[in-house]
Design a protein around this nucleic acid. Sequence first.
DNA 1: TTTTTAGTTCTGCAATAGGAGAACTAAAAA
DNA 2: TTTTTAGTTCTCCTATTGCAGAACTAAAAA
Lengths: 168, 168
Amino acid sequence: MHRQLIKKMAKSTNKTEQKKQKVEKMGIFFERSGHSPMAARVFALLLLSEPPYRDFYSIQEFLCASKSAVSNALNHLMREGMVDYITFSGDRKRYFRVNPKGWLEVMQEKIRQAATFRHLIEDVLNERTDTKYLEFNEELKKVIGFLSFLSKEMENINARWEAMQEEK
Amino acid sequence: MHRQLIKKMAKSTNKTEQKKQKVEKMGIFFERSGHSPMAARVFALLLLSEPPYRDFYSIQEFLCASKSAVSNALNHLMREGMVDYITFSGDRKRYFRVNPKGWLEVMQEKIRQAATFRHLIEDVLNERTDTKYLEFNEELKKVIGFLSFLSKEMENINARWEAMQEEK
DNA sequence: TTTTTAGTTCTGCAATAGGAGAACTAAAAA
DNA sequence: TTTTTAGTTCTCCTATTGCAGAACTAAAAA
């Protein structure tokens, strides 16, 4: 397997080699948001591709990966909404690409998700009604307060953003 | 090992048993934010404890876990800032507790972290200057725009929140 | 109808993460 | 000084995750 890699590397042009390094580096960045190494690399590759879409085999070849790994990675990214695909008439292939809007929504959703800790803390407070340690409860209430605020802000953040763009 | 568990469960009172179930349920919730099962359970337990702090052995016993697992979980949570401990004079034990302020900061930091995708996308755009697919670049610029906005909002969100609390 | 294409799904292995238990350490107590 | 306490660190094992390769499938092409 190492030898295979060497072999393929030898075939790569210098330019592709540079791109591979960028993909790997950027891939590691995406891994930190919880994606598998392969999903992270696929996403990075699509971001850096010209044209900004690629067919299945081209992804597989570029990343020196198995079909199953690529298939699972793409399906994972599509389920999340970060990737989708386009087709061309007379061509049965799918051309996968980053869906920037979907990606943004995924990020927004994660922030909204954070705000749902509020409900968990509310449950905690319900369990702590008889406490002798009121200060702890008060601190938790502050956290709830902040998360409610965040929640409200996130609700209309798109509206506010668009408003700000127009007044510019 | 299963038998051990049964044995300990038999010893538990009905009330503790209920609490254990709550801790497990809440623990699974915390696992979703990337913590190990044990760290997630420790955090949940501390949230539900009366008093809201516990010594090492009490945590270990409640969770039927090994010392190493508890030690690693606590240190992990303390490094993140979600947990700290207090001490009492004439008592060498540490009493571990949730640090609500630290927890809030961790959540805020995660949101700020999301906004740093902006820099990554800027790098992508620098690689894509010669593209024939300007629309894709434009969409990426929109994502950057939003993340910059988010970034700015997060910078002063604490100030805004406090302001809002006072005017109430 | 048979063959090819564009993937998907299944099976099994390899890497990684998480936790148990024991050995260890530093400070306090006896 | 020796012993106990309150954890930490190390070694090993187990569970989970991620991926390769092969078998499979559905639709298109020949």
